[in-house]
Amino acid sequence: MIELFFITGWTVIVVLAGNFLRKRFLGAKRIYMLLALNCLYLVGIFGCYPLVLQISGKL
């Protein structure tokens, strides 16, 4: 269950940050910022998931 909480929580944080960036930047800059955020999102998932699994005792 903790895994699902982590994924949902991280997704909500990134979506909110994405919404903020979308309003703050315009044009190509916005695309690059969103791309960087997207990269951070996936790195966060793949990077922190093993830690979450360790916390829940599944790894």
Binding site: A36, C39, F46, G47
Partner: peptide
């Protein structure tokens, strides 16, 4: 999945 290569691949893909 093996996480480390996926992290590197994420950065390279982006």
């Amino acid at each position: 999945p093996v996480f480390k290569p996926l992290i590197i691949l994420t950065v390279i893909s982006h």
